[in-house]
Design a binder for these strands. Sequence first.
DNA 1: CGTTATTTGTGCGTATGTATT
DNA 2: AAATACATACGCACAAATAAC
Lengths: 253, 253
Amino acid sequence: MVRTKTGSSGGRESAYHKLARELRDAILRQDYADGARLPTEAELADQHQVSRQTVRRAFQDLVAEGMVYRVPGRGTFAAHRDEQYLRQFGSVDDLMGLSLDTTMEVISPIQRKVDLEAAGRLHMTSDRVHRLAFVRLHDDVPFCLTTVFLPSAVGKLLEEVPEVAQSGTRSTLTIISLLDRLLPQPIAEAEQSITVGTASPEIAEHLHCKPHQPLLRIDRVYLSTHGDPVELAISYFLPEHYSYRVRLRRNVP
Amino acid sequence: MVRTKTGSSGGRESAYHKLARELRDAILRQDYADGARLPTEAELADQHQVSRQTVRRAFQDLVAEGMVYRVPGRGTFAAHRDEQYLRQFGSVDDLMGLSLDTTMEVISPIQRKVDLEAAGRLHMTSDRVHRLAFVRLHDDVPFCLTTVFLPSAVGKLLEEVPEVAQSGTRSTLTIISLLDRLLPQPIAEAEQSITVGTASPEIAEHLHCKPHQPLLRIDRVYLSTHGDPVELAISYFLPEHYSYRVRLRRNVP
DNA sequence: CGTTATTTGTGCGTATGTATT
DNA sequence: AAATACATACGCACAAATAAC
């Protein structure tokens, strides 16, 4: 997906971005089920009082996301995906519910750091980020170690939060719920990648496991409604205590 | 005087496709190491004798693929290798959903087995299941080993399918697409769990990795529209080249 | 069968705005 | 303040695929 940076100032939404969002919402609402054709470029341009090029720009994003497919001479169709059998319907809100019966314990309070890789993954110009690390516990047993990287502007906001400012502090917060309250733009989506990692000595100590023990590694980049990355979270889970479960549902009418 | 390209009907490559491909190849060759800036739009337009708009169109695709990111006023940069690496090979989800350009090679043909655990996870009263194992290859390189367990009634249907009846057979089938054709009730959903496993000697041999190497383990139980389990698939993925990537979106009102 | 209308695809021009240096 | 570089938006012309006639 093309994620354009319109500036973190929270300025106005571009025309094609707005149109793409409206069409995406309509598709997710199943407004174009049963392989129904979407309006043509000319119709949408007329309805929304924009040029055909702007409509095309919106569709480019939707095609890149896999939301629609287009056939020259025929039209544009919602990707009901006969071919893709199952589709994950996890949501960002599911992740927010992670704190239900778990506790967060800060092991490295929020502070400014220089981290080129994290800054790059947050698409920042500077190499300075804010970093914070904590373990998550269930019944007082640690099962996950998370390191969070934040753009400086975002990190400054969190410096004022006492729960993340001191080592050893326990709370039932989640970072994204904090950000959701503090940021002018809410968190709209996340890119998640799941792979395998191994425990460094430091990780092993906090998770009470052996060094080099295989761990489930989940990286998430959270994006604001403008598509700006606002948080990078790298989590290592003990596979004995945690597996990533999701229900996949078929997406065909 | 729009000097338009083609004129010939064949699968002529468009200018922006060609430019995107060349830039992509250069990035994959590490011509632009982490953090290095790519040529500006104006420079590329001049070098390739195309308009700036065409250059922009090429970049839109590269941004959508995650190959590059762009910062207004600064320039265009190759995505960090960690992100790029994954894009390069695709995600598990892409590969599992539709069998894009992957091949299945049977390593253990379908046969009746007694397996209490599998039978239990399929909610069966009997302890007899059908079992089938295969590796999946991409460009002739194995990246995943899957063992499939089926209820006897379902397994009987697959015994008639030559592609799964003999060891060594290669095909581009997927089991769920087979079941979809053969079963009276289509597959409606699946429960998936992702965790970490290690390579047994047998797995290591088939995946060309070392024994005890950590692997991404993905279990799926497929359910018919009636909610009956019809397939249990246990897959081990090589984590070096594949990660499970998901994009999560916040639910819209 | 070809013709025509519709619809998307490609390519380029211009103008203006915004972010960075 | 000026120059650079990307972002948005609109316009036009023509190509190519599809469907209807």
